[in-house]
Structures are given as structure tokens and as C-alpha cells.
């Protein structure tokens, strides 16, 4: 049973702010977690700090997902954000690291060497958003077919696709006459 201890939160925030300093773009307190906003190149060092710093121990990888802020009403630093959720079993705290990624160069260091669970979630983000994770051991599509083109969860991707549904080749069944019959 993890109990709520305010001093854990205060020490976490103090340590993160001392480590990140100016690299921290912003911080938000949500209902049950803290969110740290950084630029893409600073995300991995912050996550490694959260995992390895004595007394923090964010050893549990919860999730990795992404957001496309295209045409979002509130201005954001960059178009894409990759969100990593971590849990510290020792502190009983969840944190999110929100890493902003530029539209022109959607690349980010891979977390798969820190957390094995990041392997497939990074493939999913690559598949649906087209954000490349540098250093990933096997970055290929995981949900869409291997020869699919484009990244369908981007906001500028048409909902009904670009004709993938109907672009299968047509064959006339007479050329493949079945044996036997009713």
C-alpha cells in the first residue's frame, strides 16, 4: 500500500528543478501526477535522472504516447509532444515527462535501453505519428501493415485515408476457377 506523503512530492520537485534548471519549460500538477515539460533533446537525460537518482527510483515504465498539436487552440512550443509516464514504487508518485518535438525534425532519443517496455510503445508512436526514435533496436510498424504509407494519427491525415481501403488489386474469379462444385 502506497500512502500519500507530501514530503515525497516536495523532495521530488526540488530535485528535478535543481537538475533541470532552465531546461524545464514548465511544470504542471495534475490530480495524481506531476508533469514536466522539456524539449525533445533534454527528455532522455531527465528520465534517466528520475530513474537512477537515489531517493527517486522511477523504475516502472507505465506508458509512452504522443500528441499532435496541429491547429490546437492553445499555443504550444512545438507541434508534437511525446509523453512518458513513470511510476516510483518507493515514493508512490507518478510523473509525466512531456517532450516537445519539432515538426521539421521529428526525432527523439529512444528509451528502449532504459526501459524494455518502451520498445513496442515507441514502435507504436513511430507507426501512428511518424516520430523517429534514434537508437531503437527494431523501429518498424506495429499496428498498420508493413507497406502502409503515412502516419494516420497525425491531424493532417484524412480520416478516411488516402485510398488504402480500396487500392487492393482486382482479380477476376474466372482466372482462379475452383475445383469441384455444388
Amino acid at each position: 500500500m502506497i500512502t500519500y506523503k507530501p514530503e515525497n512530492h516536495l523532495s521530488l520537485l526540488a530535485k528535478v528543478e535543481a537538475f533541470a534548471g532552465d531546461r524545464l519549460l514548465g511544470r504542471e500538477e495534475k490530480s495524481h501526477y506531476h508533469q514536466f515539460k522539456v524539449r525533445g533533446q533534454d527528455a532522455k537525460s531527465l528520465i534517466q535522472f528520475l530513474r537512477d537518482e537515489p531517493g527517486l527510483g522511477f523504475e516502472m515504465f507505465i506508458d509512452l504516447t504522443a500528441v499532435d498539436y496541429l491547429r490546437y487552440p492553445i499555443a504550444q512550443p512545438e507541434r508534437f509532444a511525446v509523453i512518458t509516464t513513470l511510476l516510483s514504487p518507493t515514493l508512490g508518485i507518478r510523473v509525466q515527462v512531456k517532450a516537445f518535438v519539432a515538426e521539421g525534425d521529428p526525432r527523439l532519443p529512444s528509451l528502449s535501453d532504459l526501459y524494455l517496455g518502451a520498445n513496442w510503445t515507441e514502435r507504436e508512436v513511430w507507426d501512428l505519428y511518424g516520430i523517429e526514435f534514434m537508437g531503437h533496436p527494431d523501429l518498424k510498424r506495429i499496428l498498420m501493415p508493413d507497406d502502409y504509407e503515412g502516419h494516420p494519427l497525425r491531424k493532417d491525415y484524412p480520416l478516411r485515408g488516402r485510398g488504402e481501403r480500396g487500392n487492393f488489386p482486382v482479380y477476376h474469379a474466372t482466372t482462379q476457377k475452383p475445383q469441384g462444385g455444388v
Binding site: 487492393f168 488489386p169 482486382v170 482479380y171 477476376h172 474469379a173
Partner: peptide
Amino acid sequence: SVAYRTPDT
């Protein structure tokens, strides 16, 4: 004939 698409490729 009845034509069907094939996703074989």
C-alpha cells in the same frame, strides 16, 4: 464474372 479484390500483395 464476379470480380473480387485481393489483398495478396
